[in-house]
Design a protein around this nucleic acid. Sequence first.
DNA 1: TTGTAAGCGTTATCAC
DNA 2: GTGATAACGCTTACAA
Lengths: 335, 335
Amino acid sequence: MAVTIKDVSKDASVSIKTVSRVINNEANVAELTKNKVLASVKKLGFRPNKSAQSLRSKKSYMLALLYDNPNKSYLADVQSGIFNACKNTGYNLVIQECNYKSSKLTNDIIQFVKDFKIDGLVITPPLSDMQDFLSNLEASKIEYAVIAPRIMNPDSLYVSSNDYEASYNLTSEIINHRHRDIGFIKGHPKHSASLLRFNGFLAALKKHGLEPNEQWIKQGNFSFESGFDAGVEIFESSKIPTAIFASNDSMAAGIMKSAQMKGMEVPNDLSLTGFDDSPIAQQIWPALTTIKQPVQQMAAHAAKILIAKFDGLVDKTKSKEFKSELVVRESLKLL
Amino acid sequence: MAVTIKDVSKDASVSIKTVSRVINNEANVAELTKNKVLASVKKLGFRPNKSAQSLRSKKSYMLALLYDNPNKSYLADVQSGIFNACKNTGYNLVIQECNYKSSKLTNDIIQFVKDFKIDGLVITPPLSDMQDFLSNLEASKIEYAVIAPRIMNPDSLYVSSNDYEASYNLTSEIINHRHRDIGFIKGHPKHSASLLRFNGFLAALKKHGLEPNEQWIKQGNFSFESGFDAGVEIFESSKIPTAIFASNDSMAAGIMKSAQMKGMEVPNDLSLTGFDDSPIAQQIWPALTTIKQPVQQMAAHAAKILIAKFDGLVDKTKSKEFKSELVVRESLKLL
DNA sequence: TTGTAAGCGTTATCAC
DNA sequence: GTGATAACGCTTACAA
């Protein structure tokens, strides 16, 4: 059968407790003893039994990623970031697809975490925007880190982007390209990013003395289709804007398709900007001017600060704001 | 503390072994006893401790998804399919990003499965194409189901698509649209799907008395960029094909972009077809004629047959071939 | 600094 | 059909 702590203790001529101390990196083990044990561990190929550890210590060495997000590219990036952060830490990643609308969401997640002794959660929008949900997790003593579009409560674990500023800057860039008639497609209403991006847009308009035109402001939901539909509506208006700011790239791509089907050319007949710098931004022609966020790194950091907390590394357990970056491509034209 | 089997046994006035029998659905429990126990379980809100179960029974109730795939949409679909199949089974899904080139791949995975007592693996291309790797898993008694582009060894657990036939049919469709000069972009060489799709293409050409033109056959790797590059190369040829069959949609989108940058119009100057029916197929204009595979359902089935096997449901543990479907959209034009 | 003994919450053995 | 008891492999108290 498999090698156990007992085998190691015999081989190294120490007690099992000492072996336990060594494999858990506890203090108060003589250097000599430690080396002796380590040698036996290596020699015998000992691997601690996670189930036994879990039973005793109530830890599973598993993180879970919670998401309810239609954006596959975002999901893949987040996942990849967390996965890389887990590498060589002994932690692994369980995924949990959620439905933010489900009334059972909170109970299901709490049950799941308790059942599997999941050590901590990484939570993405829009779940990370649901304060009730988060409060319930806290009440159940569940550890988590959220990925959010703005700075959060400093007591909590989070990584954030600066969507408001990024949106403000992008809008300013559009205005600097001499556009005055600018449409806006809002994102999914349950994502707090949507409001931040919209407010950044409005603030930049105001700053430059421009008024938003309600006819060109449409509600989307971050999906390609919602962008397409918004485009169709806008292009039916009596007057058409010279530029449209879509709250993400998928919607921008949808607008581009609807424009092209109308026989309009981007950027000659219409400038277009997106948000996120997802792959689609470069896979359509012309490529989208957009905002790039370091999603993978953000996700990795979220996992890192969680794990650091489990490991008691208080000084390394720091929430952090990541800066977005304006990416100018062909879809935005100087008037 | 949490409710244990002991509490239930007291409450129901039976032994803990009897409780164990009931929660594991073992035979030889009197109906009356069973109901008594079940009532106590419900009353006390008992949930078996997975760690303890795992320690004793060497099971974790965890499946792992192995992937090394640049296609985010495919990954998201597979994941979602497996996740849904796991729902209400008590199983959960751990993800494991792999590098098929890594010399440590096999050992790392075996170690991971042993450490966490992962019950079974769902393996996607190109990992599912690596026979050595699979053999090593078997030698280590690791259960797995593969997702593959063709029918596999009937002793193994797999779900397959019919890439060869689908490619043959799609090519025939192109030819039926009166194209004679047809280019082809090959997929990633490590994916067996690549060869199957290419061979299906060749067979259809042959069947219709056409010769492949080497100048229009390019090696890609399933990425958008590789499609773009292949397009650039082909459009530099002295003679340009009237249609190009790209082995997946991302590459087709890449070709479309390179065509548009050359000032060519799809489908008027060039017909284009892809494979997979990924979201990008509909997010570009004109939309791609392509092959649709039920990826989510395939992945779900893979998880189902694995779980059925664990649960000893021999008759439900059946590998299965899924049929692909031709989706005709605007990118293919009748000459 | 190290070791002994107890126990985590299950499932397995074997007797009744 | 049912139950007492051991055992899984580890961590936690507590001693030494």
